[in-house]
Write a protein that binds this DNA or RNA. Structure first.
Lengths: 228, 228
DNA sequence: GGCTGATTGAATCGTGCGTTTGACTTTGCC
DNA sequence: GGCAAAGTCAAACGCACGATTCAATCAGCC
């Protein structure tokens, strides 16, 4: 896993910051190298000089945060598993390990919070698809690692069920990151991300756990009416 | 709400079918009018002749399915509410009304099932954003209608909580539609959509309901350990 | 100062895009 | 047949894009 060595200042850093901001705002496809260079009043050729190509720049933008997030996820899951020593973890703790690194990374950025989450959401929406093979493998490894953890904590859930439920949950997370503004109910500002993620953890845990506890029926009638 | 009058054959229909297929496969942004016309061996200018512009063609592709799906959602919710006459519906029935129209529309298409769901997912991912104002309003109206229904069935859940949970759920649905292939665990084919949606309904209902029943704690420990 | 390597700049290349044009061909109808 | 409307076609337009060229400039160092 190659270390990212980025200077704290200089033209390369300036370009990368600008690209990151614009990619977060408009999406990776919708930003041209001219958009980026004009934003920081540099020459078009700067991108190709410093990064080789538009793709090279994009990869660096993605690596800068995807890498730390993925590694922190694994680290948190490791430490949680050590803490519970072989027993299945509470679902909330697994999801927390999956989600909390986002908060940490958000604080390390110059980027406005909202835009950082959009960027991360866009990255994770593609699940490493089409990215550099190294980072794609890391995505897959992380995903399998968490899958095993969930499976251990939910032995009663059939594998196909588990895969599907985790899929629903991660989809909800991606949507939450990329469409955070839709959470602002009416005129008010959207709730902060920490609160939202806390809601997400409870939601996801309940969904994953569905059917494994003697859950009381909805007060309005028996579920037997439905064929699912 | 203008009726869509599309001939069953003819060049217009042929173009629209091709556009639909390609949009579903590669996304709306990634398909050029040349891609579409070459696919059916017609001239480039055909698109502008028949639809006025690329945008006009896109809008028709979207209207063809978004409209029926949204209307069937409302109709199903109406009939469910009539059935339960004022009492709050079971969550499963609301989610079913939201989700089942997708299955119905899928059967009315020439499109391969998988690709139809990708198309619908892409449409609903943007939530009518940037679409024709008429369809955008319909999106919003449908969304508010379902929000009220959920609220009535979950009076104990605070509005901000409810908005967030519904947001997570719809995000999961979009992800499921657009990334269905990720559900194929290993080499096997992915489960069919009816089964997946049935899982989704149970997952979503459990997530929405979280905390409103005296849910037993996870067997491994008290939740009080976590600050969420 | 003067050399060297790292940057920047203006201009240009080739490509693919959505759209337009105007001539041509087909179709439907009297 | 004749005519108008509908449809098709090759060609071109203007534009934005990523990339490249090469001369000009800058920075650090002897």
């Amino acid at each position: 896993m190659r270390e990212l060595t980025l200077p704290d200042s200089g033209p390369k850093r300036k370009l990368l910051d600008a690209a990151e901001l614009l990619f977060a705002e408009k999406g990776f496809e919708a930003v041209s190298v001219r958009d980026v260079t004009q934003f920081v009043k540099m020459n078009v050729s700067a991108v190709n000089y410093h990064f080789g190509s538009r793709d090279g720049m994009m990869t660096l933008v993605i690596l800068r945060y995807a890498n730390p997030v993925l590694e922190e996820r694994i680290a948190r899951l490791d430490s949680a598993e050590r803490k519970w020593a072989g027993k299945g973890l509470p679902l909330e703790e697994i999801i927390d390990a999956f989600v909390r690194p986002l908060l940490g990374q958000a604080r390390k950025t110059d980027l406005p919070e909202r835009q950082f989450y959009k960027l991360i959401g866009r990255i994770f929406a593609e699940n490493g698809d089409g990215l550099a093979p190294a980072i794609e493998a890391q995505f897959r490894a992380t995903s399998e690692r968490f899958m095993r953890a969930f499976g251990k904590s939910l032995p009663a859930v059939a594998p196909e069920d588990l895969v599907a439920r985790i899929h629903f949950m991660t989809g909800g997370l991606v949507h939450l990151l990329t469409h955070q503004e839709m959470l602002s109910n009416g005129a008010a500002a959207p709730p902060d991300m920490a609160a939202t993620l806390s809601r997400f953890i409870r939601f996801g845990a309940a969904g994953l756990r569905e059917g494994t506890e003697t859950e009381p029926l909805a007060k309005n009638g028996p579920q037997a009416t439905f064929d699912f």
